[in-house]
Design a protein around this nucleic acid. Structure first.
Lengths: 131, 131
DNA sequence: CTCCGTGCAAATACTTTGCAAAGCG
DNA sequence: CGCTTTGCAAAGTATTTGCACGGAG
């Protein structure tokens, strides 16, 4: 039903870039990565495609940190840790208890929960060593 | 040590407004609430004070939803549920399992975790009824 | 009197949008 | 050829900042 999508080399490149990094980039970062390879790429295109991917569920948004939206090409359920010192974002595998919490919360609120995102904040081991 | 702060009726009003609501307002909402009582209140002032409260740890930011930052005057540890239909934000008491997860994650990452924020997304019971 | 807090308007920063041209099928 | 995607630039939106003035201590 949503087969109305042409092939586009640039769209593919955007998705590839997002999937081939372990970081959790912003639209601008993706743009800068691709700019050298596709000199006529426009920032608007990156935004447009990222929004569409997000809508399609092909990628996931981590939300806005410091005014910029961060994306994650890895859509397997996992959580994130943000170092409040260096600002880096790390992946955290989901705890098995989560599904229990999930169900419990759903009942408590009488709501239909679709997803759950955990955000830890603290100091990463690298920054701890440096101090 | 940071006692260089004068009294300000407006600052107090902003904090009061934030604390006396169960919602999780944006800067603009706070501004609109106070505008009738303080007609010469400026939006910049609200932003300035909210940022300062956030920095002081007097209030907490829930992050940006739909391009607007939401604040919470309740700094006790609890989580949130966002209805992806109507956009409302509900409080969720923290699950007892959380502290276990907390510790486990801390060990897995070898990091020092300071805080943890869980964000559920789904459809709230009100919106479910309406459909 | 000396700083702090504020209004106001201008400036930023990020993101979205309109439109004509180029591309896919 | 009909529909999709793109570049470009202009428009939006939320937030921050500079500056001069009124108020607190």
């Amino acid at each position: 039903m949503n087969k109305r999508q042409n092939y586009s080399r640039k769209r593919e490149a955007i998705l590839d870039t997002l999937r081939s990094t372990k970081t959790h980039p912003t639209a601008e970062w993706v743009y800068l990565q691709l700019k050298s390879q596709y000199p006529d790429l426009s920032l608007g295109t990156v935004y447009r495609n990222l929004s569409q991917f997000k809508e399609d569920g092909t990628i996931v948004s981590l939300g806005v940190v410091n005014g910029q939206e961060h994306f994650d090409g890895d859509i397997s359920p996992h959580s994130h840790f943000i170092c409040s010192h260096c600002g880096s974002v790390l992946d955290v595998p989901n705890d098995p208890n989560l599904s229990i919490m999930f169900k419990r919360t759903s009942q408590a609120l009488d709501a239909q929960i679709e997803s759950c995102h955990i955000l830890f904040r603290g100091i990463c081991s690298d920054c701890m060593k440096k101090q």
